[in-house]
Amino acid sequence: MSANGRSPGAPILEVGDVHTYYGSIHALKGVSLTVNDGEIVTLLGANGAGKTTTLRSINGLNRPRQGSIRFDGRDITTVPAHEIVRRGIAQSPEGRRLFPRMTVTENLEMGAFQRHDRSEIREDMERVFELFPRLQERRSQKAGTMSGGEQQMCAIGRALMARPKLLLLDEPSLGLAPIFVERIFDIIRQINEQGTSILLVEQNALMALDAADRGYVLETGRIVLADDAASLKTNEEVRKTYLGET
């Protein structure tokens, strides 16, 4: 059973024994993970464990030197970054990475860059504004001048504008005030309930495990734990390392 009450479907994303490097730095040393259709899967790990690198391997920004990545039944290991979103993977990257000198509306339009169905893009923008009323108020503001929480909403909204089958979220709660964190996690659940699978990278393990169906724990480039979210929450290692218990 999944957290959203639906039973998860077939694997949509399969990462198999992926090795990724930065020059000679061996950042991922054989990472394997799966996201099933309709799931929220969380990837936990300390700073520098390789969470962002895993996402960058999936979305084509850092091509793995070894291993394979399959999405929606097709191999995407060597597909260039700008093709990935067309296949159905969108991302809210670490640090949000909005286009600072574009307005909120323009940023959202950029999210739909590879789409051509104009009227549906407009509808989707309305949906994003329903999800984040704050963004609607700020629609003509330059993205670079907004607060961190607003920027995070814009980054998630921008990713949704691609109508992804799989959404990659890299530390969406980082640096946000607690009330924003709650709000962001609510919205992550809502997005998932509307049918989008989610791979959620977080340092806020408690919140992430509450929202997720399953989780993986990454340590210095290797997966060291993989289990249901509920089991991970009671796992002693996890509690010690990530939930701040002694």
């Binding site: 260039p80 990935i84 979103v85 990475r97 909005l98 286009f99 950029m110 860059f113």
Partner: peptide
């Protein structure tokens, strides 16, 4: 638009689908 996005953030532009 692709030019402006690329000028502001190349990685972000790439994951929007911009070559």
């Amino acid at each position: 638009k692709a030019m402006r996005a690329t000028a502001q953030d190349k990685d972000a532009a790439a994951i929007m689908g911009i070559n």
